[in-house]
Design a binder for these strands. Structure first.
Length: 814
RNA sequence: GCCGAAGUGGCGGAAUGGCAGACGCGGCGGUCUCAAAAACCGUUGGGCCCAAAGCCCGUGUGGGUUCGAAUCCCACCUUCGGCACCA
């Protein structure tokens, strides 16, 4: 029986050796340039699925490549361990969330180890460890101290399935992104982080390399819009406070023929006239009953009710009616709009339906504004029907109106954002407790830092009630007030788990520090993350939160620099063999553990990297494993079964062999640099074929052959770490292949001496002639014309034009 | 509706202004074998043709720019992702 590639014999062996040697531990005091590589840590679901491998295997390959490039690479791993599934398991099966979580962590550690990734396990963090969430709570206190954490009553997204509120980012199409339940609106007092305070800065992506689509998504989510706040006086006795509206079109203010308030607007009740009371109340109640989905449907016709009250347009002096309508959102701007039906489609639809006035205030080519409009138009040439502003050109109109408003004290220019503050409280047990105490006398009081962590109590009952299970633990809830020691109650909400993952990359740098979340020295040493990789589904959640968090931490003086991750790469989604998302119900789930037992971790990793461009994802079919296995077998055989070796340093076969090796090094280096692993593997497969042919063809130069095999093992090291280590050892290399320098391509050896010149006649390929790679145009032309076929195609005519691309192509145009 | 990404053999994909289909799967033919599997070798876009040589067609559709277009420009179609009454 010949010596064959047997992953079972080698993978476990090397994994144990690497671990014993702490091969992937990144020391803090290493003089080599640091490289912080990070892949998004997994949630503790208990099972590592193909998607995790698809995300992590290429990240690992990139980290290993960096190591061979001479960097001190930190590639840490940990677990995102707080969250609802643990608690749901507790409710469904009576298991303690803690036990459930740690059992899953244990299982996943095993799966991750079998992957053979170069993780630095000594830096592991588990977000539900008190040693970790103590610092999550510490951050909360710092944010509170700086006014970035506050409590407020607001219309919150309530998920009836999860029995808790959600952040806006967690609501997808009016549904909970986790349970898919239709989200309800509830007015509750909740904790928020003032992410809006950083809105302007979050729009800047200076100095970081992030994918354009992610930046666009964040930019759209933040939704900056420039406009003005204008004040309308309510023509209602006893109401002195002005009705403020936000508009992006102050230049159309003379065309504002009515105001519309959101049904939840605080002044609705006070301005409604007795005659309209019944109708208004009915509408407000109907709106409150609507789900977010119904409310936000753009399909449905706009509805609304007249309040009976009027306001005065501060520019035209005109008395205009005040309506309420559910197309105005209480959460955006001021919750009130000035309606300009002539120049806004939505207002036009509303005005048409309820017979309200339409007054055009801009001229426009092709529109006779003396006739009733049949549609709103948003552009225009010059202001009209606008008193002293008549004739102001469109381009200057906004500024002119804003200036006037500011002079008169009836408004100002402003910037409004779609982004809202981040709602972080959750009415659930399995999260970091918010370290606050409610005292009757002193109100909300922070827990003193030295008392952290506020530990989660154990043996809790989990019946969902809509309140945190923590409220029922009397001995936990009742605490003395930190100020005067009198009886007080703990805050019972816990923090959104996105809080835990907003700073984990910071903790990896100093995971065992008991005095601080991170020491200043290690923050300077390791941060920011050099290469972050993960799924694009976190574009407006984790990836936005962590930027906010970082900027706040920077302002606290804990970290330096403006951004947490210098480079971001988002991998695509790996699909089942049928091209659909893998799901149990579809029966198209590919289980990594099975494939790893059958084919080995190297083969599985490699196949995932070979399916196509990493950022595109796509269908994964285990059938393709054959191709990878064949390649690994051939590579094995090359290293194990030597050809007849001789000393042939000057032979053409020897330079051909060297050329192939150095061209491969050149190409694979660029490919891995660009995270294009599938093309890197293709190049290595080609090299393997070339080496096999050389071996079959006869005697091979000893030195060239040995260099070839060593180069092959080195280039395979990031992709198939176990096999490469074994091949390297068998080729006589010193342990470990993962500590060797990445091979360098010698341009001289890689250069082709002769090429096949492509000869085109009128742009069509007609002939190929061998030619020196450095031939001049005259030489190329001579070689082409020497061909009988080229002469036939020229048909005796003289070329009118000749295009020569040296080393490639000659085009003769007649 | 708006924004973004993408459309190439039977399939995954390569080539981002210069030989379309690298590499791999699958198919076909072969070596080995009592046989099968594995392994290895060869072949594989479509058409014309007995075959070969050769020619023609071919990168979602239609136009354009260019000596030359999968690649650049314009219009359209389809798929996927994000946002969606944001005043």
């Amino acid at each position: 029986m010949a010596d064959r590639y047997d992953f079972r014999a080698i993978e476990g062996k090397w994994q144990a050796r690497w671990e014993a040697d702490r091969l992937y531990h990144a020391p803090d005091n290493d003089p080599r340039p640091k490289w912080y590589a990070l892949t998004m840590f997994p949630y503790t679901s208990g099972d590592l699925h193909t998607g995790h491998w698809y995300a992590m295997a290429p990240s690992d390959a990139a980290a290993r490549y960096r190591r061979m490039q001479g960097n001190n690479v930190m590639f840490p791993i940990g677990f995102d361990a707080f969250g609802l599934p643990a608690e749901n398991a507790a409710i469904a099966r009576g298991i303690d969330p803690k036990d459930w979580t740690y059992a899953n962590v244990e299982r996943m550690r095993g799966q991750l180890r079998r992957m053979g990734a170069s993780f630095d396990w000594e830096r592991e963090v588990v977000t539900c460890d008190p040693d970790y969430y103590r610092w999550t709570q510490w951050w909360f206190l710092q944010l509170y101290r700086r006014g970035l954490a506050y409590r407020a009553e607001a219309a919150a997204n309530w998920c009836p399935g999860c029995h808790t509120v959600l952040a806006n980012e967690q609501v997808v199409d009016g549904r909970c992104d986790r349970s898919d339940d239709v989200v309800e609106r509830r007015f509750l007092t909740q904790w928020f982080f003032r992410i809006t305070g950083y809105a302007e800065e979050l729009l800047k992506f200076d100095g970081i390399e992030w994918p354009e689509p992610i930046r666009t998504m964040q930019t759209n989510w933040i939704g900056r819009s420039e406009g003005a706040l204008l004040e309308f006086k309510a023509d209602v006795p006893g109401i002195d406070e002005p009705l403020r509206v936000f508009t992006t079109r102050p230049d159309t203010v003379y065309g504002a023929t009515f105001l519309v308030l959101a049904p939840e607007h605080r002044l609705v009740d006070r301005i409604t006239t007795p005659g309209q009371r019944l109708e208004v109340d009915r509408y407000v109640q109907a709106t409150a009953r609507q789900s977010e989905i119904e409310r936000l449907s753009t399909e449905k016709e706009k509805t609304g009710v007249f309040t009976g009250a009027y306001a005065i347009n501060p520019f035209s002096g005109r008395k205009i009616p005040i309506w309420i309508a559910d197309y105005v959102l209480v959460t955006y701007g001021t919750g009130a709009v000035m309606a300009v039906p002539a120049h806004d489609e939505r207002d036009f639809a509303f005005a048409t339906r309820y017979g309200l006035d339409v007054v055009p205030v801009f001229t426009r080519d092709g529109v006779d504004i003396s006739q009733p409009l049949n549609a709103a138009f948003v552009d225009g040439e010059a202001m009209v029907n606008s008193g002293p502003f008549d004739g102001t050109p469109f381009a200057e109109a906004k500024q002119a109106v804003i200036q006037h408003a500011e002079r008169e004290g009836i408004g100002c220019g402003t910037v409004n954002y779609r982004l809202r503050d981040w709602l972080i409280s959750r009415q659930r047990y399995w999260g970091a407790p918010i370290p606050m105490v409610h005292c009757e006398e002193h109100g909300v009081v922070p827990v003193p830092e030295e008392q952290l962590p506020v530990l989660l109590p154990e043996n809790v009952r989990f019946e969902p009630t809509g309140q945190s299970p923590l409220t029922q633990i009397e001995e936990w809830v009742n605490v003395p007030c930190p100020i005067d020691g009198k009886p007080a109650r703990r805050e019972t909400d816990t923090m959104d788990t996105f809080m835990c993952s907003s700073w984990y990359q910071i903790r990896y740098c100093d995971p065992h520090n008991e005095e601080l979340p991170i020491s200043p020295g290690l923050a300077r040493k390791w941060l920011p993350v050099d290469q972050y990789t993960g799924g694009a589904e976190h574009a407006v959640m984790h990836l936005l939160y962590t930027r906010f968090f970082w900027k706040a931490a920077r302002d606290m003086g804990v970290v330096e620099g403006d951004e947490p991750m210098a480079r971001l790469f988002c991998q695509g989604v790996i699909l089942g063999p049928d091209g659909n998302r893998m799901s149990k119900s579809r029966g198209n789930v590919v289980a990594p553990d099975d494939l790893v037992s059958e084919w080995g971790a190297d083969a599985f990793r490699c196949q995932l990297m070979f399916v196509g461009p990493w950022d595109q994802g796509g269908p994964y079919n285990p059938k393709g494993m054959q191709g990878i296995i064949r390649w690994l077998n051939r590579a094995w055989t090359l290293a194990v079964e030597q050809p007849a070796l001789a000393e042939l340093p000057g032979a053409p076969e020897t330079s051909a062999l060297r050329r192939a090796v150095h061209q491969t090094i050149r190409d694979v280096t660029t490919d891995i640099e660009e995270l294009s692993f599938h093309t890197a593997i293709a190049r290595l497969m080609e090299l393997t074929t070339t080496l096999s042919r050389a071996r079959e063809a006869g005697a091979v130069d000893r030195e060239a052959w040995e260099e070839s095999i060593r180069s092959l093992a080195l280039m395979m090291a990031p992709l198939t770490p176990h096999l490469a280590e074994e091949l390297w050892a068998r080729a006589g290399g010193t342990y470990s292949v993962h500590q060797q320098a990445w091979p360098e391509s010698d341009a001289g050896l890689a250069r082709e001496e002769t090429i096949e010149l492509v000869v085109q006649v009128n742009g069509k390929v007609r002939e190929r002639v061998p030619l020196s790679a450095t031939a001049t145009e005259a030489e190329a032309r001579q070689a082409a014309l020497a061909s009988e076929r080229v002469r036939q195609w020229l048909d005796g005519k003289e070329p009118r034009k000749v295009v020569y691309v040296p080393g490639k192509l000659l085009n003769l145009v007649v």
